[in-house]
Design a protein around this nucleic acid. Structure first.
Lengths: 338, 338
DNA sequence: ATGAAAGCGCTAACAT
DNA sequence: ATGTTAGCGCTTTCAT
């Protein structure tokens, strides 16, 4: 069987190439009979348009790229990127887009890949995640004029993004602790190279201040989102005699829980804990974690939809969105609200 | 600045399009001087060949596809696919290939996507993971003549695959239990729609038989690779009064540990446990899990290399590889060897 | 060693 | 409503 092309379908249907092309693209200006006939032939033969030819001739490839700029570490340590990928692929499947994945394992990958991504015309647009604050990739992208949506907010007013409202989420978590009467509330921060980690810590501080507590920097320990860093940070915090702790991710909270249990501290009796993310393991932790749920899959899907919207109708004005979070109350803080 | 094409580079270098093309493709038959000059211009301008034009004109797109056929559930429940993706992208980055990701969230995705993947000529070849035994995708792929490498072994002699030696791995784990003197060894199986789950259970049975134990089917409980299914399965197994258990994945083992601890059973004192995978959490479990390590990242990278090899030199004979596993001894079985 | 020229399979004016 | 035609940016004979 020879290769299936528009030409062949045209021949088999007894019309011209253009007409077939119109049918395929669902263009107007095709008579119902002809359309039906052509569709029939396409169905029978199983014709699929050649993607390369399409993107070469037209302006759209129907391919979008997902870049994950994070050095691979947390990619498997945490279900964040898997969930994001799920949300993104869900949406690309729904909208008949193809997804190409760019994963930077190290800095040299980034240097090698980014010019190619930008100038290759392989993708119509990009969803960009895992960048650090001040990541040079973002200005590069802006300058290149390639349409893109950032996952996580950005100061530059030209960039479109989908963010999770980390500040408000963290704030609500810490407010909850305060309402329950905890006085000496520590924090374990995430990797502060990430906007999200900064924002969560900021939410913690705001909550404290808005309730008239002062922020004690010795009660804030930096982690890097790994379970082990949570473990280490908690060991430090124990010595500060906190009565509660806000942990910036469930993954670190699991490590913190381990530190506490190894030190014979009971949660929430000796120390209360709230964290962030609501990963599946949070529910099964001992005790089950009260945590701020963020809709990661939703974020991925929204990023795709936003990018598609930009591709259709132009990038101005930039789209900027913050998705709300939800405090999931379980037993790691003791009270059930108040 | 106008678009950068071969033509433009040719003009700037004072040579013909063909010569530039030869330089770009590292072809022989270009004089050193000319090559240097052209390379200089490319460097200055930041020229990158247009991918679509390339794959339309040539026979290679330098794009490979990764299909994950598994319904999304375990994608984030377990670090398997993230690790596989890491290995694959690591290798595609190294070999200057672009990766497109096809993730089937449900059956209709599969039906919609697979014809497109196959006939689109979007990818040069495919790495296929997450298929079930007797998944219709495999015969479809064979028939379509698209080069592909399956992750996990397959009976059909025409398919190339990279497998982990699950049978031997499971066997060594159970042998270890037997050597330590355990008599009544139960098993928690994975989702038996997967080849890997079947093979692990098979390894368990072989180990038992080869040491003269009989296989007691009431001691085998089926799970589905989730933590919760491990929890449920262990609760059933406790009533069978086993003294040890082989769990087909660390994820399920974590659930099993939870069941045991809720029932006041201590590990390994009351019941010993070996599992499979060696995910990061295995080390931090209580007690740390003795488990069979599989090199998932390696598998992904090998799949890419194998596919590239097939693409270069033809698909015959099929490449069939089984990667070895390694028993990582920690404290969940009590003994330290013997 | 280099250049000229013919496509690859499609889209998108432009005709009719 | 349909057909004709000219590219899109590259690779690849085939000349020279």
């Amino acid at each position: 069987m020879s290769k299936l092309t528009l030409e062949k379908i045209a021949e088999l249907s007894g019309v011209s190439r253009s007409t077939v092309s119109r049918v395929v693209r669902n263009h107007e200006s095709v008579s119902p009979n002809v359309r039906k006939r052509v569709l029939g032939v396409i169905e029978e033969t199983g014709y699929q348009p050649n993607a390369a030819a399409r993107s070469l001739a037209g302006q759209r490839a129907n391919v979008i790229g997902l870049v994950i700029a994070e050095p691979a570490q947390s990619l498997f340590t945490d279900p964040y990127f898997p969930l994001l990928i799920q949300g993104v692929t869900q949406a690309t499947n729904d909208y008949d887009q193809t997804l190409t994945l760019f994963l930077f394992h190290n800095h040299s990958d980034e240097e090698k890949l980014s010019p190619r991504i930008i100038r290759n015309q392989l993708v119509d647009g990009l969803i960009v995640s895992g960048t650090h604050v001040d990541d040079p990739l973002v200005p590069q992208l802006i300058e290149s004029n390639i349409p893109f949506v950032l996952v996580g907010r950005h100061e530059d007013p030209r960039v479109s993004f989908i963010d999770v409202d980390n500040v408000t989420g963290a704030q609500s978590a810490v407010n909850y602790l305060i309402r329950l009467g905890y006085k000496r509330i520590g924090a374990i921060a995430g990797d502060l190279k990430n906007r999200g980690a900064i924002d969560r810590l900021d939410g913690y501080k705001r909550a404290l201040r808005s309730r008239g507590h002062r922020v004690d920097e010795t009660l804030i320990i930096n982690g890097d989102y790994t379970e082990f860093s949570g473990f280490q940070a908690m060991n430090q915090l124990i010595e500060q005699e906190v009565d509660a702790v806000f942990v910036s991710s469930d993954g670190m909270a699991l490590g913190a829980l381990r530190a506490l249990s190894e030190n014979g501290c009971s949660v929430p009796h000796d120390i209360a804990m709230v964290s962030f993310d609501d990963i599946p393991a949070a529910m099964h932790a001992k005790p089950p974690l009260t945590t701020v749920r963020q809709a990661v899959r939703r974020t991925g899907a929204m990023a795709v939809e936003t990018l598609l919207d930009i591709l259709e109708s132009g990038a101005t004005p930039p789209r900027r969105l913050a998705l709300p979070t939800e405090l999931i109350v379980r037993s790691s803080c003791g009270g059930t609200g108040g």
